[in-house]
Amino acid sequence: MDSNKGQGGIQLLLAAEQEAQHIIASARAAKTVRLKQAKEEAEREIAAYRAQRESEFRKKVAESSGDSGSNVKRLEEETHIKIEQLKNEASKVSPEVVAMLMKYVTTVRN
């Protein structure tokens, strides 16, 4: 009878080992499924974040490019005004500068 008990114990151990292998296999399969789900969730979050950042970037580019056109126009107008002011100042001082230069050029020193 002892051999029957030994055989029954071995059979019980083999059955327990097979059950443990099934549990491990199902746990690995569940882990693989969960990893795939996590990867898909992460990809969706990344895509949403990228879309948000790109829209913010395009908005800023649109704002800055619109401003740069108006800035260029404003700077051109300011430059033109400054040039006119300098021409007016130069025309006012021009006779005095010419007289001073003529004085120094025509004066002979010994």
Rank of each mutant, 00 (worst) to 15 (best):
R28V: 01
A29L: 09
K31G: 03
V33Y: 00
V33R: 11
V33S: 10
R34V: 07
L35C: 00
L35V: 11
L35M: 06
K36I: 03
Q37A: 05
Q37V: 13
Q37F: 02
A38M: 08
K39W: 03
K39A: 10
K39P: 02
E41L: 13
R44H: 09
R44L: 13
R44D: 08
E45S: 05
E45W: 00
I46W: 01
I46L: 13
A47S: 11
A47M: 09
Y49M: 12
Y49A: 15
R50Q: 14
A51P: 08
A51Y: 00
F57N: 07
F57A: 06
R58M: 06
R58H: 10
V61M: 12
A62E: 09
S64P: 00
S64V: 00
S65N: 12
S68K: 10
S68F: 07
N71S: 11
V72F: 05
V72A: 13
K73Y: 00
L75Y: 13
L75N: 15
E77G: 10
E77W: 04
E78P: 03
T79S: 04
T79C: 06
T79Q: 02
K82Y: 03
K82H: 02
I83R: 08
E84P: 04
Q85H: 10
Q85K: 14
L86M: 05
N88L: 07
N88F: 03
E89A: 14
A90N: 07
A90C: 08
V93K: 11
V93P: 03
S94A: 11
S94W: 00
P95Q: 04
E96M: 09
E96D: 10
E96A: 15
V98Q: 09
V98I: 15
A99S: 12
A99G: 10
A99K: 08
M100R: 04
M100S: 11
L101P: 04
L101Q: 08
Y104N: 07
V105A: 12
T107F: 06
T107E: 06
V108E: 04
V108D: 04
N110G: 02
